[in-house]
Amino acid sequence: MDFDTVRNDNVLQPLAGIFPPSAGYARIAKSGSTHISYADITEMISAGDTEAHDLEFKSQIYDASEKSKRLLATDAAAFANSSGGVILIGIVSDRQGRATAMTDVPLGNESVGRLSNIVSSLVSPVPDFRIFPIENPGHSGYGVILIFVSGSSAALHTVKAGQGLLFPKRSGYNVHFLSESEIAAAYRRSP
């Protein structure tokens, strides 16, 4: 997979569900956009966009620790089990979830490929997701990583955790783990 080109090719469709897209998500997915730029992401900082049901900020790239891998898988599965959303890596947020600064992360194929492998290996079934490195024009090889995860009503997405499975779902700007009764109800609603 070639991670050098940053195009959204209209994958950031409006989110299904009862919640309208957040301001930050709408800014990324603005109508007719075929190229997500570093300036678009910088605009989110200036506007004070906040984390929401469809938007998560991470200041640093997920590392190779088991805890960090599980966190990425949980974030991806939670969006897939909800109405979808975007994880932006390289964005610092305050206690209210408001974007306050950017911290460029490495964008090499190794970093981006590792993130893809984590989601593909720890989330089942694998959600529809795409990863877009967005390079800082003033800092070659560094910038922000955008992970778009489509919402899925076809199946519950689980995260492998030790000998068990977790069933995360997005609840506002937090992740909520489904109870046994919520899991059963979700399977009854599945097509």
Rank of each mutant, 00 (worst) to 15 (best):
V6E: 02
N8T: 11
N8K: 14
V11F: 09
P14I: 06
P14D: 05
A16C: 04
F19Q: 11
P21A: 12
P21K: 08
S22M: 08
A23S: 12
I28K: 03
S31H: 11
G32E: 02
I36D: 00
Y38Q: 05
A39L: 07
A39E: 12
D40E: 09
T42A: 15
S46L: 12
S46M: 12
A47W: 00
D49R: 01
T50N: 05
E51S: 09
E51W: 11
H53M: 02
H53Q: 11
E56W: 00
S59K: 15
Q60I: 10
Y62E: 06
Y62A: 03
D63T: 08
S65P: 00
S65G: 04
R70E: 07
L71M: 10
T74M: 14
T74D: 10
S82V: 00
G84M: 06
G85H: 06
G85Y: 00
G90M: 01
V92Q: 15
S93V: 12
R95C: 02
R95T: 10
R98P: 09
R98M: 12
R98Y: 03
T100R: 14
T103H: 15
V105T: 14
V105M: 08
L107C: 10
N109I: 00
E110H: 12
E110R: 15
S111Y: 01
G113C: 07
G113K: 12
G113P: 10
N117G: 12
I118S: 05
S124Y: 09
P125K: 06
R130G: 01
I131C: 10
I131E: 05
P133M: 00
N136M: 08
Y142A: 12
Y142L: 11
I145V: 15
L146Q: 13
S153R: 14
S153F: 03
A154Y: 03
V159K: 15
K160P: 02
G162L: 13
G162N: 13
G162K: 15
L166S: 11
L166T: 07
F167Y: 15
F167G: 06
G172T: 02
G172H: 10
Y173E: 09
N174P: 00
S179I: 00
A184M: 11
A185G: 07
Y187S: 02
S190V: 04
